[in-house]
Design a protein around this nucleic acid. Structure first.
Lengths: 198, 198, 198, 198
DNA sequence: CATGAATGAGTTTTCATTCAT
DNA sequence: AATGAATGAAAACTCATTCAT
């Protein structure tokens, strides 16, 4: 790994770097990390194969940037819901976050999976996923506290709620068991979450 | 893909095929599907590279066998708990299944991830995961019914409970957020599950 | 190459060796020498893979036997026509040989081609093809002489006639140019042959 | 088979692609298609193994290009003779084409054979050989017509003449029967051809 | 700087041949 | 003698990375 990678300052360069990240994002999401090669990323980004190595030291490095973008994309809408929800109506916010998470997952599920599979072999990837959870946990905990909702083991409850939402979104997007009534399941999930915080 | 793959009948052959599956299991779990090559599987199994192709038509075929073994390993202990739990004490069984799932996950988390990442690109893999869930769902639903526990949307509740357990196991094994009290979290999960069925 | 190859004396063994040759004949004709593997030959012959190496020192050795069988099959009918044609009616015999050659070629054209392609790399194969021509040439020359047909450069004329027949057969079986009237072509070939010997 | 094969536009690239074709031509001619591997072609061409796959999608693709080059090489001199022969002196032109065909065959006989053996398994190869014959047939028929030589079944006669020439060339180059007087045979072939068109 | 052609180690897969049972 | 499982060298092909232009 060389590390004489350009830190782009000029607008043009930043734009180019972003294009590469976008291209990686798209292709990893479509055919997975191992199903994508750097030449394809370059082509999708509209740059030369060599240019990729001006901005990233290797393929993994692109993946790390894609990962950060994904984390950003996955957390931002949830953060926004929390920020805007004042005062905090737990049932309403839970439902909103759940629905938003489903729609995010619909766009990103494949990417999520391929990145998740890399986490076990790559500590930086694992750390990014953990940081994502920490970030959301903290934000949610703050929102709850600001509204006087104080239950024991708040962090644990928040994690559990997040996990339920994440699992539901994944199942809804991917598994599609035909005997499952997803609308009913959604309502049960919401109720369970509410029960965690009352 | 050729399909003149040996269907081993004799004990020795079955043993050898199993050795290859075990080797794949071990290596996929350690370094992932893409981090393993067929030569390494052969070596780990103590056979020649050619022998691998006597029993499997390609690398994916090994993976499918590993997947089935994993599904078996992941569901068997849970099935056994359900079978032995008569009459069904929901809190006790929920806790048992949760604890067992954690220990299974501890052994298999990496394998689970690498296989899961393949599911999006390989319908057979996806189908196997869905079948696994269906299988457990059905068994749990039967156990509940046999004990007179009849709630609306039983399948949805079971899925949700399974998801909570799975998420908890994953988080416990992998994420290790330092600020999380996993014992407390475990108890909250159990309570939530119980509340789903009373 | 080992040469401790069994020279089968017993009927059972001879039969087995012949089965292997027949299997090679069939498969080489269907998918070519390089498209056939020894395991397939063994299977087609109904013997074990090891048994093949009891009778043949390697794959090439099977091919040589197939080649001899082919030469035999290709020349026998022509020889018979010549033997039975007394007195020799050149136009009639030419037509008979031509028609017979076409039907032989129809059965064996693929085999002929795959063996012919090996001739350049394998002197024994080349020699067998030359011997085949020599054999027919000699027989035809004898038949002509026995009927008082004595033209200068008899061998050259016979070769030429044989070549015309062979080419016609090949073209008829393989090429199938749509604008060619093969019945008319056949008659022209016959006339040309007759003109060689009158 | 991927189809993201480089379509070389620049001189350097075209040159390199040609080098690979030349290398394939040489090696297929020396040791046959199955006797050559892609690494050897690359080495002979003075390029890396990977470069071969920049220009060709697989080994067969190289073979197809070699085939086209061979067809070109085999037909060009004959075409030229026909173009330059005005008015058409049939005996002279027949002799010229025959002699030229012999010299072409001397250079290309092995290549011809190995490609021919592939024709049965590969429709594109077969089609190329048929197109070659069609091309020459048409050109010869035109030349004859332009010189007022009009016999019934012209195409059939041309094919027959071509076959005679081809067979003679093959026999002359390869078979070398010692009892054959090839000079005499050559003259007989010429006379036969002439007799086809008078 | 930018390009994209070039590299070659690494991967999957095949199959003629051997040899333990 | 017979079997067919086992071997492993060799082949086709890929792709992250480099570097000459």
């Amino acid at each position: 790994m060389k590390n004489n990678v350009r830190q782009p300052q000029q607008e043009r360069s930043i734009e180019k770097k972003n294009k590469i990240i976008q291209a990686g994002y798209k292709l990893f999401a479509e055919v997975g990390y191992h199903g994508t090669n750097t030449a394809e990323i370059a082509k999708e980004a509209g740059v030369s194969t060599g240019a990729v190595y001006d901005y990233f030291c290797d393929k993994r490095d692109i993946m790390i940037s894609v990962l950060h973008l994904y984390v950003e994309n996955a957390s931002r809408p949830v953060m926004q819901i929390l920020t805007e929800a004042k005062p905090l109506d737990v049932p309403k916010v839970a439902a909103e976050i759940l629905d938003k998470t489903v729609s995010i997952h619909r766009e990103n599920a494949r990417l999520h999976n391929t990145l998740h599979a890399l986490a076990a072999a790559d500590e930086a990837v694992n750390a990014a996923f953990i940081a994502l959870e920490d970030h959301v946990t903290q934000k949610v905990a703050e929102a709850l506290a600001a509204n006087g909702i104080q239950r024991q083991h708040a962090a644990e409850r928040v994690h559990l709620a997040m996990n339920m939402i994440q699992s539901f979104a994944h199942e809804y997007v991917f598994d599609k068991h035909e005997y499952i009534d997803y609308a009913a399941m959604r309502d049960i999930v919401c109720k369970q979450i509410v029960s965690l915080f009352e």
